[in-house]
């Protein structure tokens, strides 16, 4: 549904987005990760047609944003960063406006408005003026506006920013649910969100895509991904673990009296259990007692830190 091809955008001398390409298909939820100022918002603004790319091409639903923006925009729902809404209107007037400008009239309009009011739990504030709403309600009002026409493409810039943990959970579930029938792109700083809601994630740093894959793929890039954590009880220092086939390196972690902690680095997939079996055999032979044996999945924040640079390095 969304195709971004070699898109570049600069503001003055500063290149915000450089040669970025990716595709989002129907049924996909794409998480957009990156440090502040990496170009996430700029990319989303180009997808929604608010900004025009300097070079490259963006199509939404097969329509070129540069040539047929008005038709393409009908397919898109957009939740901009900081969730703006007309503070001089009431919630219901604002949603009516959003529905009408999307071409919904009469009964279809009131049905759509009622649907999003229910979906975003806005019933209790429907006649309240938006500038008197708390941040969470205001955010949900803008969220409601973005899905009022049941769009095929949903672009959300930090959809859970400023929400309380319950609301965050709610929004994540909503995104996941809607992702089954739509093409969704959302940006976030919160890595657990990517694991919770995305089918695929892109990490963007200084305007460039530095990683693109499923959350599991990305986690696999972590240094410790696939390694085994082992805790043993043994009277003497255990040896022989480093000789197990498939173990690249044995790391001895600090242990207490009688307990020994190890990390066995390995690149074998989680389905291959030969190492675990070999450890069990060794333990049996040497009468060690296995207290704990787990395989590390790798953590997204570790991957994130290893492939993006902090601000002070720029």
């Amino acid at each position: 549904m969304i195709e971004v091809q070699n898109v570049t955008k600069s503001f003055g001398r500063k290149t915000a987005v450089e040669n970025v390409s990716f595709v989002v298909k129907k049924g996909e939820v794409l998480g957009f990760l990156g440090p502040n100022g990496a170009g996430k918002s700029t990319t989303m603004r180009m997808i929604t047609g608010y900004l025009e790319p300097d070079a490259g091409k963006i199509t939404v639903g097969g329509m070129d944003m540069a040539q047929d923006a008005l038709h393409a925009r009908r397919l898109i729902g957009y939740l901009p960063e900081s969730a703006p809404a007309y503070s001089d209107l009431s919630v219901i007037d604002f949603l009516n406006f959003a529905a009408e400008i999307r071409g919904l009239r009469g009964a279809a309009r009131s049905k759509a408005v009622d649907r999003v009011i229910e979906m975003c739990f806005l019933g209790s504030v429907r006649h309240q003026s938006i500038d008197t709403l708390s941040k969470g309600y205001r955010h949900r009002t803008c969220f409601a506006q973005s899905v009022i026409h049941d769009p095929e493409v949903l672009v959300m810039d930090e959809p859970t920013d400023g929400l309380d943990p319950n609301q965050k959970h709610e929004v994540r579930n909503l995104i996941k649910e809607m992702g089954k029938s739509k093409a969704i792109v959302f940006s976030t700083h919160i890595l657990e969100e990517v694991e919770a809601a995305c089918t695929r994630a892109i990490i963007i740093d200084r305007g460039k895509v530095v990683a693109n894959g499923t959350p599991a793929d990305l986690k696999g890039r972590a240094r410790n991904a696939g390694s085994l954590l082992l805790t043993l009880k043994a009277t003497s220092a255990p040896n022989g673990l480093e000789k197990i086939p498939g173990v690249d390196q044995l790391e001895t972690l600090s242990g207490s009296e009688g307990e020994h902690h190890f990390r066995l680095h390995s690149r074998k997939s989680a389905k291959d259990t030969t190492i675990e079996e070999a450890i069990a055999d060794l333990a049996l032979k040497n009468s060690w007692r296995i207290i704990r044996l787990t395989r590390e999945e790798g953590r997204l924040d570790e991957v994130f830190r290893s492939i993006t640079l902090p601000d002070n390095v720029r």
């Binding site: 008005l70 925009r73 901009p80 900081s82 703006p84 809404a85 503070s87 959003a98 400008i101 999307r102």
Partner: peptide, 14 residues
């Protein structure tokens, strides 16, 4: 100031 211009100009409005 409110940022609603980003909403308005990304709606199907010229």
């Amino acid at each position: 100031r409110m940022g609603t211009i980003e909403l308005l100009l990304t709606m199907p409005v010229h």
